[in-house]
Simulated scan of single mutants.
Amino acid sequence: MRRWLVVGLLLVSACGVEVEEEVVATPRAVGPLGPPMASSGSLVTAVGGEIVACEGWGGGDCDTVYDIGSVTKQFTAAAIVELQSMGRLDVRDRIGRHLDGVPPDMRSITIQQLLTHTSGLVGSLGDDYEPLSRDDLLREAFASDLRSAPGTRYLYSNVGYTLLAAIIESASGEGYEQFLARHLFEPAEMTRTGYVLPDWESADVAVEYDARGRAHGTPLDHPWAEDGPYWNLRGNGGILSTARDMFRWSRALDGDELRELFRPRVREGAHADTWYGYGWVVLDSPVGRVQWHNGGNGLSYAEVTRTPAEDAFVFWVTNRSRGPGWNLERNGLTNALVSRLASLAPQPPL
């Protein structure tokens, strides 16, 4: 399996090199916006809890900090599972046990329905950087119309995961990021993951670029509250991390409590071959069960994949997901990697 993952790494790295032929590489960000047309990325692969390779392209490396988008959701889900193990909540709780002001049509929504995107809540309520406070977000969420009756349909909802962040605060008595840092990141020795608590060096945070190569600054250059992003983003996206820290997270995921994240619970569509767990997508493939999630904001993009049967882990991220001739969100490099691994697997004897 180790040889297959190295080949997979070369496959993904080759895609990165192909992208770099269109752009000017740079060693980390320079100034508040960085040089024009710069893009970078990093990737880590591991087998058996040990790194096989951890490399970067375009000036990125294993310690370059990127926005990992909706990969954030697995941290939110893990915090909920941790709070359940502490006896602070139960995923079967209705959300009104932890949040005030829930309207009648939403009172049957449970924490588990938020985790599995079956609450019926809208996908989003506006721009990631709209200055909404926690109370503003809750008020707008509870004033919105449900898209389906709670528990009847899978509908991906960033709003649902933001409500989970608010529940984490209510149940723990701590801020969302503070709880994650103390109960998830510190035990895993993840010193370069979070919103504002890590001691960031601005030059270590990747500048983000759009499809035309225009710099949009780092995530920290956008409007945020003093304690992190505003509440359209908090809990559902926007956490910053590195390839090396995501490897450390992969080892933490082997704990008994966090196995709850990977149980397939809701099919992602009537005829889908994928299931949603808690902050993770689960699917069966030629190399066995695959646990996967992605995240992107139209600029940066990340994917994380685990194959438990082979005890393998892959994470990759880039600060420019689109450009002339490529769209990394649509092309799905991880799918190509998994397919490649399957094709390289030894065939049983006839």
Rank of each mutant, 00 (worst) to 15 (best):
D61N: 15
E82K: 12
V287D: 02
D210G: 09
E257A: 15
G279E: 07
P223S: 07
W275E: 04
L299E: 04
P104W: 11
R2I: 05
V17A: 15
Y276C: 03
C62P: 03
P131Y: 11
L83C: 04
S285C: 03
V91E: 07
W224V: 02
S202C: 00
I239K: 13
E174D: 13
G175V: 01
Q347Y: 02
R107N: 06
T305C: 15
E22F: 06
D100W: 12
H271A: 14
W224E: 07
H293W: 04
T72Y: 10
L299M: 06
S85L: 09
E177Y: 09
E140C: 05
P103Q: 14
N327W: 03
R28F: 11
D61H: 12
Y276W: 11
S42G: 12
G325L: 03
G126F: 04
T110Q: 05
C15G: 13
R107A: 14
E169D: 07
D105E: 15
T318C: 10
L197K: 14
D273V: 02
E226R: 14
N297S: 08
L350T: 12
L89N: 02
D199W: 01
Q84E: 15
N331S: 15
A171W: 00
D221I: 00
E55P: 04
L115S: 03
L328W: 06
A165E: 03
E174G: 06
T307S: 10
A302S: 14
R134P: 00
T26N: 12
S70V: 01
G160M: 01
Y161P: 09
P308F: 02
W316D: 01
